[in-house]
Design a protein around this nucleic acid. Sequence first.
DNA 1: CGGCAGGATGTTATCTTATAACATAACGCC
DNA 2: GGCGTTATGTTATAAGATAACATCCTGCCG
Lengths: 171, 171
Amino acid sequence: MAPTRAHDPRPFKRLKHDHRRCVTTALARAAKVCAASGGRLTALRRWVLELVWQSHRPMGAYDILAALGQKRETVAPPTVYRALEFLRAQGLVHRIESLNAFIGCDQPGEPHSGQFLICRACGRAAEMADGRIDAAMRCGLAEAGFTLERPTVEALGLCPDCRPCAEAGHA
Amino acid sequence: MAPTRAHDPRPFKRLKHDHRRCVTTALARAAKVCAASGGRLTALRRWVLELVWQSHRPMGAYDILAALGQKRETVAPPTVYRALEFLRAQGLVHRIESLNAFIGCDQPGEPHSGQFLICRACGRAAEMADGRIDAAMRCGLAEAGFTLERPTVEALGLCPDCRPCAEAGHA
DNA sequence: CGGCAGGATGTTATCTTATAACATAACGCC
DNA sequence: GGCGTTATGTTATAAGATAACATCCTGCCG
Ligand SMILES: [Zn+2]
Ligand SMILES: [Zn+2]
Ligand SMILES: [Zn+2]
Ligand SMILES: [Zn+2]
């Protein structure tokens, strides 16, 4: 019933890691997801997904637009928004509401509602799927008589890598 | 330490209630909060706060701008945004990230991080302060090595009043 | 093959949300 | 009354998102 994803206790990747691997994995998973759902992962959509995965920092639609503009003559906002909407519907990207930005999902497939950790220092975001948070929410809302359809859980703060710097620096 | 607010198990008000009382209460509390903090609750700011409290539906900055425009000749966006920022800093209004809109806080005073329940049918939003959700979040994030500074918890769904209609209607 | 239907993309214009930068006015204190 | 601070007015623009319509593919049927 409740989507059960393995809870990763270490949602942030190491600062140095083989990021190309992140990208290729994401693209491979996307292909699988679309094959299963019947969605058509066109060149444009794959390209947008790849741009979203460019880094672990949430990317604004207009950032993607600009990046896309470097490879093609003319790109207009609807192009990007439509691709993003498709990817979101397939569960391949998430929208970070508090940033108006998008980030790739690293566990697509089962539809799920994650929690997003956003570092205000390095700008990276990571997805978590802590069942206790999910359960606490469902429980609390049920008691309030509220029917939950789409939870949004975003945490702004400092990631493990940035915490020390910030302590020393200016906090 | 952790801001302890009484947990209201019934965050949504009755559909019919003395809403003028909500408004006057909110304004009175605002005056008290500002007196304590040294913030200056000017006429403009009070007016904006009153507009935010016009209903229990989150209000966009431009809705407020338009409403304000009916009472004054010229109002520009910065006027409204500055007032909203002041009110937010005083803890008198909250911003609903997923709606780009603002709603009055019904328990100002102690700084706190609430959870927001948003009904997609009637558009109302209600604030909750369920300690379990807060605790689950702090716990899960701490385990991830993340320093939480500003949590955002928003739940889109159906309020107790709208649930029956939606069930019958089109769901 | 040829045409057709649906889905995907291109194109233009417009809308909503938010802020930068600078000018002026009000206030609070002495 | 003078002065520093805070608040507001004003203008312009940045940033984010969508509506509406045109065109182009792609798979399918005959
Ligand atoms: Zn990576
Ligand atoms: Zn960081
Ligand atoms: Zn009320
Ligand atoms: Zn409702």
